[in-house]
Design a binder for these strands. Structure first.
Length: 120
RNA sequence: CGAGUCGACCGGGCGGCCGCGUCAGGGUCACGGCCCUGCCGAGGAACGUCCGGGCUCCACAGGGCAGGGUGGUUGUUAACGGCAACCCGGGGUGACCCGCGGGAAAGUGCCACAGAAAACAGACCGCCGCGCCGACGGCGCGGUAAGGGUGAAACGGCGGGGUAAGAGCCCACCAGCAUCCCGGGUGACCGGGAUGGCUCGGUAAACCCCACCUGGAGCAAGGCCAAGAGGGCUGUCGCCGCAAGGCGGUGGCCUGCGCAGGCGGUUGAGGGUUGCCCGCCCGAUGCCUGCGGGUAGGCCGCUAGAGCCUGCCGGCGACGGCAGGCCGAGAUGGAUGGCCGCCGCCUCCCGCGAGGGAGGUACAGGACCCGGCGUACAGGUCGACUCGUCCG
RNA sequence: GGGCCGCUAGCUCAACUGGCAGAGCAGGAGACUUUUAAUCUCCGGGUUCAGGGUUCGAGUCCCUGGCGGCCCA
């Protein structure tokens, strides 16, 4: 999974990442990526997750969140240190399998890295 | 063998690799942390939040009113609106099941339609008597409530006597009511007897009456530390912007601090008694108003408890007592995951068969803790009992 | 954690104290019109969220559950 130091834990951190980052949507996921300011480059890259209640009950939301944490953990090393990522799940994510989530995440991260605007 | 009733319980198992959270030990350190090892790490409902308690803070001389809750009895318990046993009523051939199950002869209200009449007596058709007209029919007065039809419900039922016709008007039996007595039971109540008037509608999950219970808030409770002199939320208007939003003006609310002004010294500003009144109490570093303008972070609370398991004893039972043993989550954008192998279980398909293949494996996750209730749930296990059929 | 609402025709809503579930729009048919629109007439359509209870009788009262929404901390 993902260690505590590698997760966003404050409302302010989420707001900064969503507002100051690039947005890219692919499949059932929306990612916001905020590349590091020079003073932040010392700490590790961090990630946070937004799984709204429209997805399902607590069990379903936890399952989606755990799968996303596992997926992000495998990819966080590829990002520059100090980067903040917020992954937001759409309601269809509950029925998307693990591999489907992986494909969507890779595509969305790649789109955000290229800096292209997300197609709507 | 078939059909069924009740109760108790399980909620996949083993293994590999990569990971997560708390704690403990060790190591390292630039004292922020990092690394290694080990222990532990979601449920029977953790859920819904329908009740009850523990815990914490606030309040509390006392009395009255109001409000809320409960509603057969006796127990059980920390407590309960839960549970157990029993009573009563209803259902079932039965095992068993269901019941907000006090009071309608305290009072008020309501009882649509139909029907003559719907709660207190009265009388539409009818029956009977008398009188009148007079074409065996009608009109008027009186008696009556057996019969008719309506309705969910029509002023006890049946038989006999009685009568002009009838009627508890009288009598016997039955049902029911009230009072009293005897017996049984802690009690709800049950069994029996005597007397009485002959009879009384339903609805309290309508108001109400009676009995009993009932302070308020909730771990965002509450406490400590740090930081700073403000902040948070919001209405509206203008400008910028595609938008999200940003900036500014002007109001409102909440709260800590600073400043200013005012009020106030027992003849007392103001406050408490968290619905109101009487009454009582507190009260001077206090209270009110205006202006200015912060934080929202950490730690404790925080998990050993009405705890769990086993055995014995008491009790019909809920439950209680004793002894021994055990430690079983404490997160805070919130820890149990990802990938894979084998075996279970269920369904379907292929096959004569051994077997093979495909799919599925529920309901659902702590957030202070506990006792209940209610609800969801793939599949399965055990025990006790009932009815029917057949055999002995 | 605490508190409060709603669920009725395809849609938006009524139904006073319990007494035959009803409007507007929408839909269908017809009339008027050269046709359409508008207008007029007629018609169909409901397990009143579900289950249970009280009552002679429940959309209404009571209990349990489901779904949706709102407020406060």
């Amino acid at each position: 999974m993902l260690a505590t130091a590698q997760r966003l834990r404050r409302r302010g951190e989420f707001a900064a990442a969503v507002r100051g980052g690039r947005r890219a949507a692919r499949g059932v996921l929306v990612v916001h990526v905020k590349f590091p300011d020079p003073e932040n480059s010392g700490r590790p890259a961090r990630a946070g997750f937004v799984v709204p209640r429209t997805i399902g009950g607590a069990v379903v939301r936890n399952q989606v969140k755990r799968r996303l944490r596992q997926l992000v953990r495998e990819r966080l090393g590829q990002l520059p240190t100090g980067t903040d990522v917020v992954v937001r799940a759409l309601p269809a994510a509950a029925r998307r399998g693990y591999r489907g989530l992986a494909a969507d995440l890779d595509a969305a991260l790649e789109a955000a890295r290229r800096g292209k605007p997300a197609p709507r």
